[in-house]
Design a protein around this nucleic acid. Structure first.
Length: 288
DNA sequence: GTCCAGGATCGGA
DNA sequence: TCCGATCATGGA
């Protein structure tokens, strides 16, 4: 179990099993964290970004230990432990994924490639917007568009960072106000989402207690939200580990390893984690 | 110039 | 139900 050490300049979480910041922030679930030339006081790589309206930085000396900067232990309990899914037992999930046999078995290489990933628990509204903007787009440009959206509409916080704008704020911008983010046809989709959320036509809070297919259907009422975007929103923003987005990369995996078809229910409620491991494996291959 | 990117929508078979 | 064209933008 993890142990929390409140140090002078950071919180140190130890006793983790197979935790990888690089995989977590490099697996296409989150677009607001980057490494820079800056290092932490011990010389380790620093991941900086904004989540839940707060600037935050993480580093890790090894796969069992995590350091959190600029956060109190109260914030750790209230936000970051949940954000990083440290309240979730991934050793247990791995066992459940291994339990899928036969034509539904998860390739062992995919499991090893993805080990260390955590499905983040991000803000639902920000996650919805991020994946609306992700459609038919590439990751570097998705990051640029989101950064630009935050810059023109989000409240500034320390160090040149900005909060993600509220739905109401995006409504006020309107379609013309969104032009500077250069999101193309996706801007109209973003605006529709903002309008439907502020008007209560789509109630994000209510999605938590819905069955998966019903929650997907509800999100599909927003223009520009299809099954894939809805599944990403539920998986990364609502910690719905049973949600499994199927994009071009996962389709490739399905053709390669599951030509007989795949029953996602074989992963015991963790189809989303399995999907993420498969995505990471196909997209980046085995770690060197 | 062409192709592609964590897709969705539309019209027409 | 399924297919293809189209959507806006920028980087390779």
């Amino acid at each position: 179990m993890e142990k929390i050490d409140v140090r002078e300049d950071c919180l140190e979480i130890s006793g983790l099993s197979h935790f990888s910041l690089r995989k977590i922030f490099d697996c296409g679930q989150c677009f607001r964290f980057e490494t820079s030339e800056r290092r932490d006081p011990w010389g380790d790589e620093l991941w900086e970004g904004v989540a839940f309206g707060k600037y935050i930085a993480f580093s890790q000396p090894d796969e069992t230990c995590l350091r959190i900067f600029h956060a109190t232990s109260e914030e750790y309990q209230q936000i970051w432990r949940s954000f990083l899914a440290l309240d979730t037992d991934y050793a247990e999930i791995e066992q459940r994924l291994l339990a899928a046999k036969g034509k539904n078995a998860l390739p062992i290489e995919a499991l090893e490639a993805g080990r260390g990933i955590r499905i983040l628990r991000q803000d639902p509204w920000e996650t919805l917007c991020s994946f609306i903007l992700s459609q038919n787009n590439n990751i570097p440009r998705i990051k640029k568009i989101i950064a630009s959206l935050c810059r023109i509409a989000g409240e500034p916080i320390a160090g040149g960072y900005y909060r993600f704008p509220s739905a109401k704020k995006i409504c006020h911008l309107g379609i013309d106000g969104l032009e500077p983010i250069r999101a193309g046809f996706r801007s109209a989709y973003l605006l529709d989402a903002a309008q439907k959320v502020t008007q209560g036509i789509v109630n994000l809070e209510s999605l938590y207690q819905m069955p998966l297919d019903q929650a997907v259907e509800s999100l599909e009422n927003i223009r520009g939200v299809g099954k894939k975007v809805a599944m990403c929103t539920l998986l990364f923003g609502f910690q719905r580990l049973d949600a499994f987005p199927v994009d071009v990369w996962v389709k490739r995996v399905l053709e390669k390893y599951y030509s007989d078809g795949l029953d996602w229910s074989a992963f015991g409620g963790y189809a989303g984690v399995a999907q993420q491991f498969l995505f990471y494996y196909e997209r980046w291959g085995v770690p060197s």
